[in-house]
Every structure is written in C-alpha cells, then in structure tokens.
C-alpha cells in the first residue's frame, strides 16, 4: 500500500521533472540577447545551435531517467528502522538490465551522432553557387589584422562584410596562437603561426557582431575584442571603394602592429605583400584534401596538393 502510494508520487515527480525540463529548455530560447550563442545571426551559428539543442534535449531524457532511479533508490532503501523495502544483500546480477544499460544509451547516442557527423561535414564546405568574400585574418599581439586580398584594403580590430554572402576567413598568426570567434556568426577556429586555416561564416542580416579570441596569448589577451559589421552588398561595395583611397599600410606600420601592444581600430587603403603567408597549406573548404593558397598578381588561387 505504502509502496503503491510512493510509486504514485514518484510518477508525479517524474512528470513534474519532465515538464520543468521542457520549460527550462523552451526558456532557453527566451534567454535575453546577451546569450549570444542562443541568438545566432547566420546559417553556420544556426546549424551549430540546432545540433546543440538536439543533443541537450536527448541528454535531458537521460538525466531524468538517471535522477528518477537515483532519488527513488536513496529514499526507498535508506537504512532507517522499520523500512519495509525489500533487502536483497546478494542481488548482484540481472542479465536484461546489464545488457540494456549498454544497448539503450548506445541507441540514444546514435540520435546525436548522426546529426553531428552530418553537420560537421556540411560546415566543412562553402555553400555552393555563392561567391565568397575572402578575408585574410592575422592575429597579432594583441590585435586583429584583416586583409582583403581582392580589394587590397586592410583593417585593424574590425571587419566589414556583406550580409547574405558567405565570407571565407583565412586564418593565421604572427603571434602566439589565438582563436577567431564571432559567436553570433559561428564557432571558432585557431589562428596558428606557419599555418593557414579556413573558416566560413555568413550573416543573415545587417548588424554589428562582436568577436574575440578564445585562446590565451599574453597579458593583453583580454583586449582582443573586435567587431564584424555586416552591411548590404551595396554598402559593402561603397565601403571598399572609399577605403581603397585611405592611407596604405607601410611595412613600418605593420612592424609597429607586431609589437606587444593593444591598439584601437584603423583602416588602410593597401598593405605590403608579404604580411600574409603567400604559400601555406591548410585544409580545403571546397574539397576534402589539402590545398595550398597562392597569392600572385592575378589574385588568389587554390592549388590542390598532389595525391589528395
């Protein structure tokens, strides 16, 4: 009789927990705009949030089951006088239970694993049929340099991109490693010396999205914030044309940037040729193999490496 009542209240408890969990999850979407990860502003960040939420929901199911079993056990089987629960000191094996604790979690994980793999592969390719803007990003101590190889302009600590058009960020470092991260546009990627890594992001709508480094790189590291301003295609073109007439960055100016300092935003009409690796290897966004980036007078070209 007691057991029955206990089971009854226990069932209610599980239902309440489920409802609370669901409420919490849906509340997640109403978390304020400061929760930048929950307010994606582009297709990359959106697909990343999508798998995150899916995995979170599936994990919540596991959590409810485990917590229900756990709290039931610790209440029911307490060592108190007059506890009528069955006492089975030698119960050590139950084949069905032992098999299902392996199989059921494995099945559940499949539901997470499949979208994980799908999204991982889809994010590794630029969307077809859209011409990307290429921006070469170099992390310096403790500032960000953005160079536009096609437009021959450069900015420090901010970048301007067209909305609704993919942007291919080519990342390197002339400094300790950092990560390049604009949370509302998508996940981060390392900037490493002697390597060029690709990362594509896209903004759905015009706006200013803050970014910063996620990898510690020295005492000025916390100052490595930057803004990515997404504007309309037309404004982007206007901006590049007007910027082209700004003062060019000299080699001396670049050397000043290399110093261990923090600086404000700046804009340059041109930049020296050798500031970004002219030949570097990385992993292709357009295929699965290695590629090399080649900068020359004709612009940039991607040369697939032999054997890939």
């Amino acid at each position: 009789m007691f057991a029955q009542r206990l089971m009854e209240s226990y069932r209610k408890l599980v239902l309440a927990a489920l409802a609370a969990g669901a409420g919490l999850l849906s509340a997640g979407f109403s978390f304020g705009p400061k929760y930048v990860l929950l307010h994606p502003a582009g297709p990359v960040a959106k697909s990343e949030l999508h798998v995150f939420i899916l995995a979170l929901e599936l994990m919540a199911i596991v959590a409810v089951i485990v917590l229900a079993l756990f709290f039931y056990a610790i209440v029911r089987f307490r060592d108190t006088a007059g506890n009528t629960a069955p006492y089975t000191p030698n119960w050590h094996s139950h084949t069905l239970l032992e098999v299902s604790v392996w199989i059921l979690p494995a099945i559940l994980l499949l539901f997470i694993a499949i979208p994980t793999v799908k999204t991982t592969f889809s994010l590794a390719h630029l969307p077809k049929g859209k011409d990307p803007v290429v921006i070469d990003v170099t992390s310096l101590t403790w500032k960000w340099l953005f160079e536009y190889p096609k437009q021959h302009i450069a900015t420090v600590n901010y970048a301007v991109i067209p909305a609704n058009r993919p942007v291919l960020f080519e990342l390197t470092a002339d400094s300790p490693m950092n990560t390049f991260w604009v949370p509302q546009l998508g996940g981060m990627e390392y900037t490493m010396p002697n390597r060029v890594l690709p990362l594509w992001l896209e903004a759905d709508k015009a706006g200013t999205y803050w970014g910063h480094s996620g990898q510690f790189s020295g005492v000025g590291f916390e100052k490595m914030f930057f803004n990515v301003k997404a504007v309309s295609q037309k404004s982007f073109q206007t901006w590049t044309t007007t910027t082209a007439s700004a003062h060019p960055m000299t080699l001396a100016a670049y050397d000043r940037l290399l110093k261990q300092t923090t600086v404000g935003d700046s804009t340059y009409g041109n930049y020296p040729a050798d500031t970004f690796p002219t030949l570097a290897s990385g992993f292709s966004l357009t295929g699965s193999g290695m590629y090399m980036v080649m900068h020359d007078k004709k612009g940039i070209s991607y040369i697939p490496m032999v054997g890939s």
């Binding site: 990860l37 960040a45 697909s47 990343e48 798998v51 995150f52 994990m59 997470i112 994010l123």
Partner: peptide
C-alpha cells in the same frame, strides 16, 4: 557529450 558534438564544440571550445 554536448562538447563531443563537433559543431557545438566549435562554439563552446
């Protein structure tokens, strides 16, 4: 597990 979800880790790393 959430961090093992590769695309989510890009954001959470």
């Amino acid at each position: 597990i959430l961090l093992a979800v590769v695309p989510a880790d890009y954001q959470l790393h």
